Simulated scan of single mutants.
Amino acid sequence: MSAEIPTPGPGANVKAERMKRGWLQDYLAARAGMSKSLLGKIERAQRPLTQGMGAALANAFGIPLDELLGSAPPPAGAEDFLKELRGVMRRFDLPTDEPVHVEHLEHDLVELFSLRGDANLAAVTKALPGLLKRVQNYAHQSGLPEDWARVADVYSAVYWLAARHRWMAMAELAVMKQQQAAERSNALARAVAARDEAGTFLNGGDFAGGLAVVDQAVVQAEATMRGRARYLALGLLHLRGLTLAGRLEDKNTVQRHVKGARRAAAQFDADVDVQGIHFGPENTIIHIIATNVDMKQNADALDEGERYLRGDFTLPATRIGPLHMNLARAKLALKDRDGAVDSLADAWKVAPQMARVHPTSQELGRVLISLHKRSNPKVTALAKKAGIPL
Score class of each variant (00 low, 15 high):
Ala3Thr: 13
Ala16Ile: 15
Ala16Gln: 14
Asp26Gln: 12
Ala30Arg: 13
Ala30Lys: 15
Gly33Ile: 12
Gly40Ile: 02
Lys41Cys: 01
Gln46Trp: 07
Gln46Gly: 15
Pro48Ile: 01
Gly52Arg: 15
Met53Phe: 13
Gly54Ser: 09
Gly54Lys: 11
Ala55Thr: 08
Ala56Met: 09
Ala58Lys: 06
Ala58Glu: 06
Phe61Gly: 01
Ile63Trp: 06
Leu65Ala: 07
Leu69Glu: 09
Ser71Cys: 09
Ala72Asn: 03
Pro73Gly: 11
Pro74Asn: 04
Arg90Phe: 11
Leu94Asn: 13
Leu94Pro: 00
Val100Met: 09
Glu103Lys: 08
Asp108Lys: 12
Val110Gln: 14
Glu111Asn: 10
Glu111Met: 14
Arg116Gly: 00
Asp118Leu: 15
Ala119Thr: 06
Ala122His: 13
Lys126Arg: 15
Ala127Asp: 00
Leu128Phe: 11
Pro129Asn: 08
Leu131His: 08
Lys133Gly: 05
Gln141Ser: 10
Ser142Thr: 15
Gly143Asp: 09
Arg150Glu: 03
Tyr155Arg: 02
Tyr155Val: 00
Leu161Trp: 11
Ala163Asn: 11
Arg166Asp: 00
Leu173His: 10
Gln179Met: 15
Ala182Asp: 04
Leu188Gln: 02
Arg195Cys: 05
Asp196Leu: 11
Phe201Lys: 08
Gly204Thr: 12
Asp206Phe: 09
Gly210Trp: 05
Ala217Tyr: 11
Ala223Val: 02
Arg226Val: 07
Gly227Arg: 12
Ala229His: 14
Ala233Gly: 11
Ala233Trp: 07
His238Trp: 11
His238Cys: 14
Gly241Val: 04
Leu242Ala: 01
Leu248Cys: 02
Gln255Leu: 14
Lys259Cys: 04
Gly260Trp: 08
Ala264Ser: 14
Ala265His: 05
Asp271Glu: 06
Val272Ser: 08
Asp273Arg: 08
Gln275Pro: 01
Gly276Phe: 12
Thr284Asn: 04
Thr284Gly: 03
Asp300Pro: 01
Glu304Cys: 05
Gly305Tyr: 07
Gly305His: 10
Arg307Leu: 03
Arg307Thr: 06
Arg310Trp: 09
Arg310His: 10
Ala317Cys: 04
Thr318Gln: 02
His324Gln: 02
Leu332Lys: 04
Asp336Trp: 05
Ala340Leu: 11
Asp342Arg: 14
Asp342Phe: 09
Asp346Glu: 15
Trp348Cys: 05
Val350Glu: 04
Met354Gln: 15
Val357Leu: 09
Thr360Glu: 10
Ser361Thr: 11
Glu363Thr: 07
Arg366Lys: 01
Val367Leu: 07
Ile369Pro: 00
Ile369Leu: 06
Ser370Ile: 06
Ser375Ile: 14
Ala386Pro: 02
Ala386Thr: 01
Gly387Ser: 12
